[in-house]
């Protein structure tokens, strides 16, 4: 496993374009969604001395003031805009992940791969959504059952323990489904599978049959993400945000953190490709080719 992870890490260098496109898409959509809010904040606080105090300490009353007297009709528009942005991200992710996996698998360039796998990955996303909703609904139903079972109890801890466990189970299920559908994407890229259902079930089945060999590397990369967040938050706590320079340094640091997070994503996909080749039996007829000098080429 360590060897696969190390090889996969090196291989992420093939998908630099994917990394920067992912970052650019997330940033553009975030800026689009943030713009009306920042415009509203600018109108309300732009020349107010109160803003200086708020940069030092968040005041929930100031936030409520802005919501009640500064937002106007914005919330309704914001909800629509946010929903649109999220949908756009889903579509963009379908394209970007197709391009990234194509590059990592040596199946073509970023733009070609993105276009080639876009509709398949979009269908796969819809199929994954059904799995997520089913998993969350099952857990919610179980939680309702817990409430009913313990309705006469005079102690909180038994139901609290069970419900915490159910929350953890929900998170675990969502994570396993997410990893399973990453392997489904691998199937689509490597095998050329066109059916979302076939690829989805194949990916999930693969993860469940080889749980240790698929989930352990994913967990390791997720742990790296948690450590990265730890470093980020600790560094973030150092600054006091009084000066424009510290604010700009923080923004730069936040973007660096985001790029590294996206790189971890690429590392995960690269590992999935390698594990699929190494573990699947019979082996895929389209086993991962030796690295070709694609680099950032189309």
């Amino acid at each position: 496993m360590i060897g696969i992870l190390l090889e996969a890490r090196i291989q992420t260098g093939r998908a630099k374009r994917a990394l920067w496109v992912m970052w650019a898409v997330a940033t553009a959509l975030a800026v689009l969604a943030a713009a009306p809010v920042v415009a509203s904040l600018s109108r309300y606080f732009g020349h107010s001395r109160m803003a200086t105090r708020l940069t030092l300490e968040f005041d929930p009353a100031a936030a409520m003031e802005w919501i009640r007297h500064g937002l106007g009709e914005l919330p309704v528009a914001m909800m629509a805009l946010l929903a649109g942005v999220v949908l756009a991200m889903v579509a963009a992710s379908a394209f970007v992940s197709g391009g990234a996996l194509a590059q990592l698998a040596g199946r073509g360039g970023f733009w070609q791969g993105g276009g080639q796998f876009f509709w398949r990955f979009l269908r796969l996303a819809v199929f994954a959504g059904i799995f997520y909703m089913t998993a969350v609904s099952l857990v919610a139903w179980a939680a309702g059952g817990v409430d009913h079972w313990f309705r006469g109890s005079m102690e909180e801890w038994p139901s609290a323990v069970v419900k915490t466990s159910l929350d953890a189970l929900a998170l675990l299920l969502v994570w396993v489904i997410a990893v399973g559908f990453d392997y489904a994407k691998v199937r689509m890229v490597v095998d050329g599978t066109r059916s979302a259902a076939v690829a989805g079930f194949a990916g999930l089945g693969f993860v469940l049959r080889h749980a240790w060999r698929t989930l352990a590397p994913a967990a390791f990369i997720a742990l790296c993400g948690a450590v990265l967040f730890g470093f980020y938050q600790t560094a973030y706590n150092v600054f006091d945000y009084r000066g424009l320079r510290t604010i700009l340094i923080t923004i730069a640091g936040q973007q660096l953190y985001l790029v590294l997070r996206l790189w971890l994503r690429l590392w995960h996909w690269s590992a999935c490709l390698r594990i699929d080749v190494a573990v699947r039996r019979p082996a895929s007829p389209w086993a991962l080719a030796e690295p070709e000098p694609y680099g950032d080429n189309i």
């Binding site: 943030a34 020349h47 803003a51 708020l54 940069t55 424009l244 700009l248 936040q254």
Partner: peptide
């Protein structure tokens, strides 16, 4: 309030 808005926007 450029600083504040930059901070919040960022």
């Amino acid at each position: 309030q450029t600083k504040a808005l930059t901070h919040w926007g960022g």
